[in-house]
């Protein structure tokens, strides 16, 4: 019983990371049709910015710095690199591919290829006892952060004017433009939100994995892509459900099967979802 609880909470913690990465990806994709390969770079940037800032200030403030850096990088990328290629989907993908290559290499040149130990805040260490299972607190931090971001995103989409524009743009971008609304501002905003969420995921992944390395972003990104496709592109609740399914499946199968089997099951789940509902669960 205690093993199952531990696995479930750890799986949910992983799901929280996936959701933080995937929600931004999904919105950017749904609204602007941009498959952002550099999203993993925002994550790594956030993690390294937090790591650097943590030497000068408290970890909480450092995470805020990391999130700001992630959001700023995302806005810059959107303005300078994505915008000139508006509506040219494939070229946008190519540019973000190049950016992720060059960016990871740059991080490697600056910080080295080896994993760096990540500072661990007081409130994320220690264990909590739930139903007889001793569970590290960092899992709950991850889940809490993801729930907060989920709530904030849903509130933003539901109750703000820009949220309305984003929702409408995901459904039918041409119509929104035809009504005289500049969708591009919404693009930039969505990029900023996605970058901030990814950077937060980076900082939290640093706490969760206890290290940070230039490759962290890329490995999480692939599962985030899977989550986005399973959940249905452009849907935040879809991403949340898919993230939970993927995180739990991966954790349980990796524990009860051989290591690595969970990752493969996740891809099998993707194949099944595609065969049954090619548009993802949310549509």
């Amino acid at each position: 019983m205690s093993t199952i609880v531990l696995l479930a909470v750890t799986g949910l913690g992983l799901a929280a990371l996936y959701f933080l990465v995937a929600s931004g990806l999904s919105l950017v994709f749904g609204l602007a049709d941009v498959l952002n390969f550099a999203h993993g770079l925002f994550l790594s940037l956030g993690a390294y910015a937090t790591w650097v800032a943590a030497e000068h200030m408290s970890i909480e403030a450092a995470i805020a710095v990391g999130v700001a850096v992630g959001a700023g990088a995302a806005v810059l990328v959107e303005l300078i690199m994505i915008r000139p290629l508006y509506t040219r989907t494939i070229e946008q993908v190519l540019v973000t591919v190049g950016l992720s290559m060059a960016g990871v290499a740059l991080l490697q040149a600056v910080f080295g290829a080896d994993p760096k130990p990540f500072p661990r805040p007081q409130w994320a260490s220690g264990v909590l006892e739930v139903f007889g299972a001793r569970i590290p607190v960092d899992r709950f931090v991850l889940i809490g952060a993801a729930l907060l971001v989920f709530g904030a995103l849903m509130a933003f989409l539901k109750w703000t004017r820009y949220g309305l524009i984003v929702r409408a743009g995901v459904e039918n971008r041409e119509m929104v433009t035809a009504l005289g609304i500049d969708v591009r501002k919404a693009f930039t905003l969505v990029f900023a939100i996605g970058g901030a969420a990814a950077a937060l995921a980076g900082a939290l992944a640093g706490i969760y994995f206890t290290t940070v390395s230039p490759a962290t972003g890329g490995s999480l990104l692939i599962f985030a892509f899977i989550v986005v496709v399973i959940g249905g592109m452009g849907s935040v609740p879809g991403s949340a459900f898919a993230a939970i399914a993927v995180g739990l499946l991966q954790q349980f199968v990796n524990y009860y099967g051989t290591s690595g089997a969970g990752d493969i099951c996740v891809v099998a789940l993707l194949a099944i979802v595609l065969l049954v509902r090619p548009k993802g669960l949310a549509r």
């Binding site: 950016l99 290559m101 740059l106 040149a109």
Partner: peptide, 12 residues
Amino acid sequence: SQPLFILGTVFI
């Protein structure tokens, strides 16, 4: 010093 940095930039 990172080949991929140069090649990635050239690619972009």
